[in-house]
Write a protein that binds this DNA or RNA. Structure first.
Lengths: 118, 118
DNA sequence: TACTTGTTCTATCTACACTAGAACAAGCAT
DNA sequence: ATGCTTGTTCTAGTGTAGATAGAACAAGTA
Protein backbone atom coordinates (compact mmCIF):
# COMPACT_ATOMS: atom_id res chain seq x y z
CA UNK A 1 0.00 0.00 0.00
CA UNK A 2 1.63 3.19 -1.10
CA UNK A 3 0.13 6.65 -0.88
CA UNK A 4 1.30 9.82 -2.52
CA UNK A 5 0.75 13.21 -0.89
CA UNK A 6 1.40 16.41 -2.79
CA UNK A 7 1.62 19.49 -0.52
CA UNK A 8 1.41 21.82 -3.52
CA UNK A 9 -2.13 20.76 -4.44
CA UNK A 10 -5.10 22.83 -3.35
CA UNK A 11 -6.68 19.83 -1.69
CA UNK A 12 -5.75 19.56 1.98
CA UNK A 13 -3.31 16.87 3.08
CA UNK A 14 -5.76 14.86 5.15
CA UNK A 15 -8.31 15.05 2.32
CA UNK A 16 -5.78 13.69 -0.15
CA UNK A 17 -5.12 10.76 2.12
CA UNK A 18 -8.84 10.14 2.58
CA UNK A 19 -9.33 10.18 -1.18
CA UNK A 20 -6.55 7.69 -1.81
CA UNK A 21 -7.73 5.25 0.82
CA UNK A 22 -11.27 5.58 -0.51
CA UNK A 23 -10.09 4.89 -4.04
CA UNK A 24 -7.99 1.93 -2.91
CA UNK A 25 -10.98 0.46 -1.13
CA UNK A 26 -13.30 1.12 -4.04
CA UNK A 27 -10.90 -0.53 -6.45
CA UNK A 28 -10.31 -3.49 -4.18
CA UNK A 29 -6.63 -2.68 -3.68
CA UNK A 30 -7.43 -2.54 0.03
CA UNK A 31 -9.34 -5.64 1.00
CA UNK A 32 -11.94 -6.07 3.72
CA UNK A 33 -10.15 -6.94 6.97
CA UNK A 34 -6.82 -5.59 5.79
CA UNK A 35 -4.83 -3.35 8.10
CA UNK A 36 -3.67 0.17 7.32
CA UNK A 37 -0.25 1.35 8.51
CA UNK A 38 -0.13 2.75 12.02
CA UNK A 39 -0.71 6.49 12.08
CA UNK A 40 2.75 7.26 13.46
CA UNK A 41 4.35 5.01 10.88
CA UNK A 42 2.40 6.41 7.94
CA UNK A 43 3.04 9.95 9.10
CA UNK A 44 6.77 9.28 9.11
CA UNK A 45 6.80 7.71 5.66
CA UNK A 46 4.65 10.45 4.12
CA UNK A 47 6.46 13.21 6.00
CA UNK A 48 3.24 14.31 7.66
CA UNK A 49 2.25 15.02 11.22
CA UNK A 50 0.62 12.18 13.17
CA UNK A 51 -2.42 14.33 13.79
CA UNK A 52 -2.91 14.89 10.09
CA UNK A 53 -2.96 11.16 9.42
CA UNK A 54 -5.23 10.52 12.38
CA UNK A 55 -7.62 13.15 11.13
CA UNK A 56 -7.89 11.30 7.85
CA UNK A 57 -8.34 7.98 9.65
CA UNK A 58 -11.10 9.39 11.85
CA UNK A 59 -12.89 10.79 8.82
CA UNK A 60 -12.73 7.39 7.16
CA UNK A 61 -14.06 5.79 10.34
CA UNK A 62 -16.92 8.29 10.48
CA UNK A 63 -17.75 7.29 6.94
CA UNK A 64 -17.72 3.62 7.86
CA UNK A 65 -14.78 2.60 5.70
CA UNK A 66 -12.44 1.56 8.47
CA UNK A 67 -12.49 0.58 12.11
CA UNK A 68 -10.07 2.07 14.63
CA UNK A 69 -8.87 0.22 17.75
CA UNK A 70 -6.11 1.16 20.13
CA UNK A 71 -3.17 -1.19 20.01
CA UNK A 72 -4.60 -2.77 16.90
CA UNK A 73 -4.67 -0.04 14.25
CA UNK A 74 -7.00 0.71 11.37
CA UNK A 75 -8.84 -2.18 9.73
CA UNK A 76 -10.80 -1.89 6.50
CA UNK A 77 -14.46 -2.74 7.04
CA UNK A 78 -15.88 -1.57 3.70
CA UNK A 79 -16.38 -3.76 0.67
CA UNK A 80 -15.12 -2.73 -2.77
CA UNK A 81 -17.65 -0.68 -4.68
CA UNK A 82 -19.03 -2.47 -7.69
CA UNK A 83 -19.94 0.69 -9.54
CA UNK A 84 -16.72 2.57 -9.15
CA UNK A 85 -16.35 2.39 -12.91
CA UNK A 86 -19.57 4.35 -13.30
CA UNK A 87 -18.06 7.34 -11.56
CA UNK A 88 -14.96 7.31 -13.72
CA UNK A 89 -17.08 7.00 -16.86
CA UNK A 90 -19.26 9.92 -15.76
CA UNK A 91 -16.16 11.98 -15.09
CA UNK A 92 -14.83 11.22 -18.55
CA UNK A 93 -18.08 12.45 -20.01
CA UNK A 94 -17.81 15.71 -18.08
CA UNK A 95 -14.27 16.23 -19.30
CA UNK A 96 -15.40 15.66 -22.88
CA UNK A 97 -18.23 18.20 -22.62
CA UNK A 98 -16.12 20.72 -20.75
CA UNK A 99 -13.39 20.56 -23.37
CA UNK A 100 -15.95 21.11 -26.10
CA UNK A 101 -17.07 24.29 -24.31
CA UNK A 102 -13.49 25.34 -23.64
CA UNK A 103 -14.09 25.31 -19.90
CA UNK A 104 -10.92 25.22 -17.85
CA UNK A 105 -10.36 22.37 -15.38
CA UNK A 106 -10.72 24.83 -12.53
CA UNK A 107 -13.97 26.27 -13.83
CA UNK A 108 -15.37 22.80 -14.35
CA UNK A 109 -14.31 21.72 -10.90
CA UNK A 110 -16.05 24.78 -9.52
CA UNK A 111 -19.25 23.88 -11.34
CA UNK A 112 -18.96 20.38 -9.96
CA UNK A 113 -18.63 21.58 -6.40
CA UNK A 114 -21.52 23.93 -6.93
CA UNK A 115 -23.65 21.02 -8.13
CA UNK A 116 -22.63 19.12 -5.01
CA UNK A 117 -23.92 21.77 -2.67
CA UNK A 118 -27.34 22.00 -4.24
CA UNK B 1 -29.13 39.97 -12.90
CA UNK B 2 -29.36 38.56 -9.41
CA UNK B 3 -26.68 36.60 -7.63
CA UNK B 4 -26.96 34.59 -4.47
CA UNK B 5 -24.03 34.23 -2.09
CA UNK B 6 -24.16 31.79 0.79
CA UNK B 7 -21.47 32.44 3.42
CA UNK B 8 -22.10 29.06 5.05
CA UNK B 9 -20.93 27.07 2.03
CA UNK B 10 -17.42 25.69 1.90
CA UNK B 11 -16.82 27.43 -1.41
CA UNK B 12 -15.24 30.83 -0.96
CA UNK B 13 -17.34 33.93 -1.55
CA UNK B 14 -15.43 35.19 -4.56
CA UNK B 15 -15.48 31.70 -6.10
CA UNK B 16 -19.25 31.52 -5.71
CA UNK B 17 -19.60 34.81 -7.53
CA UNK B 18 -17.26 33.69 -10.30
CA UNK B 19 -19.24 30.51 -10.79
CA UNK B 20 -22.55 32.31 -10.99
CA UNK B 21 -21.32 34.80 -13.54
CA UNK B 22 -19.79 31.97 -15.53
CA UNK B 23 -23.06 30.07 -15.50
CA UNK B 24 -25.06 33.16 -16.41
CA UNK B 25 -22.79 33.73 -19.41
CA UNK B 26 -22.91 30.09 -20.47
CA UNK B 27 -26.70 30.09 -20.28
CA UNK B 28 -27.03 33.35 -22.13
CA UNK B 29 -28.59 35.14 -19.19
CA UNK B 30 -25.69 37.56 -19.48
CA UNK B 31 -25.35 38.68 -23.08
CA UNK B 32 -22.24 39.71 -24.93
CA UNK B 33 -21.70 43.43 -24.37
CA UNK B 34 -23.90 43.54 -21.31
CA UNK B 35 -22.64 45.34 -18.23
CA UNK B 36 -22.22 43.84 -14.79
CA UNK B 37 -23.09 45.92 -11.72
CA UNK B 38 -20.34 48.17 -10.43
CA UNK B 39 -18.19 46.43 -7.84
CA UNK B 40 -19.15 48.85 -5.06
CA UNK B 41 -22.82 48.49 -5.94
CA UNK B 42 -22.77 44.69 -6.13
CA UNK B 43 -20.80 44.49 -2.91
CA UNK B 44 -23.45 46.53 -1.16
CA UNK B 45 -26.34 44.47 -2.46
CA UNK B 46 -24.66 41.13 -1.69
CA UNK B 47 -23.36 42.37 1.65
CA UNK B 48 -19.79 41.70 0.62
CA UNK B 49 -16.64 43.73 0.67
CA UNK B 50 -15.71 45.60 -2.50
CA UNK B 51 -12.41 43.78 -2.66
CA UNK B 52 -14.14 40.43 -2.63
CA UNK B 53 -16.27 41.39 -5.62
CA UNK B 54 -13.29 42.88 -7.43
CA UNK B 55 -11.33 39.71 -6.85
CA UNK B 56 -14.08 37.77 -8.58
CA UNK B 57 -14.21 40.29 -11.44
CA UNK B 58 -10.45 40.11 -11.95
CA UNK B 59 -10.56 36.33 -12.05
CA UNK B 60 -13.28 36.51 -14.68
CA UNK B 61 -11.21 38.97 -16.68
CA UNK B 62 -8.18 36.69 -16.47
CA UNK B 63 -10.36 33.93 -17.88
CA UNK B 64 -11.48 36.16 -20.72
CA UNK B 65 -15.15 36.32 -19.80
CA UNK B 66 -15.35 40.02 -19.07
CA UNK B 67 -13.51 43.23 -19.75
CA UNK B 68 -12.76 45.77 -17.02
CA UNK B 69 -12.43 49.50 -17.64
CA UNK B 70 -12.28 52.32 -15.13
CA UNK B 71 -15.31 54.55 -15.16
CA UNK B 72 -17.05 52.05 -17.38
CA UNK B 73 -17.36 48.87 -15.34
CA UNK B 74 -17.36 45.21 -16.29
CA UNK B 75 -18.57 44.24 -19.75
CA UNK B 76 -19.23 40.68 -20.88
CA UNK B 77 -17.00 39.70 -23.76
CA UNK B 78 -17.71 35.96 -23.87
CA UNK B 79 -20.35 34.34 -26.07
CA UNK B 80 -22.97 31.97 -24.65
CA UNK B 81 -22.01 28.32 -24.85
CA UNK B 82 -24.15 26.42 -27.30
CA UNK B 83 -24.78 23.20 -25.46
CA UNK B 84 -23.96 23.85 -21.86
CA UNK B 85 -26.94 21.68 -20.93
CA UNK B 86 -24.95 18.57 -21.79
CA UNK B 87 -22.19 19.61 -19.46
CA UNK B 88 -24.58 20.29 -16.61
CA UNK B 89 -26.28 16.95 -17.15
CA UNK B 90 -22.92 15.16 -17.15
CA UNK B 91 -21.96 16.96 -13.97
CA UNK B 92 -25.20 15.92 -12.32
CA UNK B 93 -24.43 12.33 -13.21
CA UNK B 94 -20.99 12.61 -11.62
CA UNK B 95 -22.48 14.09 -8.47
CA UNK B 96 -24.96 11.23 -8.28
CA UNK B 97 -22.28 8.57 -8.63
CA UNK B 98 -19.90 10.33 -6.28
CA UNK B 99 -22.56 10.66 -3.59
CA UNK B 100 -23.34 6.96 -3.89
CA UNK B 101 -19.67 6.21 -3.21
CA UNK B 102 -19.57 8.83 -0.45
CA UNK B 103 -16.88 10.76 -2.26
CA UNK B 104 -16.43 14.29 -0.99
CA UNK B 105 -16.80 17.23 -3.40
CA UNK B 106 -13.07 17.87 -3.07
CA UNK B 107 -12.15 14.26 -3.74
CA UNK B 108 -14.37 14.19 -6.80
CA UNK B 109 -12.97 17.46 -8.04
CA UNK B 110 -9.49 16.03 -7.67
CA UNK B 111 -10.45 13.03 -9.77
CA UNK B 112 -11.93 15.39 -12.33
CA UNK B 113 -8.78 17.44 -12.63
CA UNK B 114 -6.74 14.27 -12.99
CA UNK B 115 -9.01 13.17 -15.80
CA UNK B 116 -8.52 16.55 -17.44
CA UNK B 117 -4.76 16.25 -17.52
CA UNK B 118 -4.76 12.83 -19.13
C1' DT C 1 5.13 -6.49 31.96
C1' DA C 2 6.54 -4.05 27.95
C1' DC C 3 5.18 -2.49 23.63
C1' DT C 4 1.94 -0.81 20.22
C1' DT C 5 -1.57 2.18 18.82
C1' DG C 6 -5.44 5.21 18.90
C1' DT C 7 -7.46 9.17 21.97
C1' DT C 8 -7.40 13.54 23.92
C1' DC C 9 -5.47 17.84 25.29
C1' DT C 10 -3.07 22.28 24.79
C1' DA C 11 -0.31 25.30 22.03
C1' DT C 12 1.87 27.48 18.11
C1' DC C 13 2.66 28.77 13.29
C1' DT C 14 1.14 29.75 8.76
C1' DA C 15 -1.73 30.73 4.84
C1' DC C 16 -5.82 32.49 3.12
C1' DA C 17 -10.26 34.66 2.92
C1' DC C 18 -12.44 38.60 4.18
C1' DT C 19 -12.87 43.10 5.72
C1' DA C 20 -11.54 48.06 5.94
C1' DG C 21 -9.98 52.52 4.49
C1' DA C 22 -7.58 55.41 1.61
C1' DA C 23 -5.46 57.49 -2.43
C1' DC C 24 -5.16 57.22 -7.29
C1' DA C 25 -6.15 56.88 -12.54
C1' DA C 26 -9.06 56.35 -16.48
C1' DG C 27 -13.38 57.15 -18.56
C1' DC C 28 -17.99 59.44 -18.81
C1' DA C 29 -21.68 63.12 -18.43
C1' DT C 30 -22.96 67.71 -17.96
C1' DA D 1 -13.30 72.06 -17.56
C1' DT D 2 -15.62 70.01 -13.68
C1' DG D 3 -17.43 66.46 -11.14
C1' DC D 4 -18.95 61.83 -10.81
C1' DT D 5 -18.28 56.95 -11.64
C1' DT D 6 -15.48 53.01 -11.53
C1' DG D 7 -11.61 50.04 -11.56
C1' DT D 8 -6.55 49.86 -9.59
C1' DT D 9 -3.37 49.71 -6.06
C1' DC D 10 -1.70 50.02 -1.47
C1' DT D 11 -1.46 49.00 3.52
C1' DA D 12 -3.42 46.74 7.40
C1' DG D 13 -6.27 44.22 10.58
C1' DT D 14 -9.25 40.07 11.83
C1' DG D 15 -10.87 35.37 11.85
C1' DT D 16 -10.62 30.61 10.59
C1' DA D 17 -8.69 26.30 9.27
C1' DG D 18 -4.86 23.36 8.23
C1' DA D 19 -0.75 21.63 9.83
C1' DT D 20 2.70 20.94 13.19
C1' DA D 21 4.40 19.78 17.91
C1' DG D 22 4.60 17.57 22.34
C1' DA D 23 2.68 15.28 26.05
C1' DA D 24 -0.18 12.26 28.88
C1' DC D 25 -3.48 8.69 28.67
C1' DA D 26 -6.26 4.25 27.60
C1' DA D 27 -7.06 0.02 25.34
C1' DG D 28 -5.28 -3.79 23.18
C1' DT D 29 -1.29 -7.10 21.92
C1' DA D 30 2.91 -10.05 22.55
Amino acid sequence: MLFRIDPTLNETLFAQLVTQVRLAVAQGALQHGERLPAARELAASLDLNVHTVLRAYQLLRDDGLIELRRGRGAIVTARPAADHANLLAAIDEVVREARALRFSPEATATLLKEAFSS
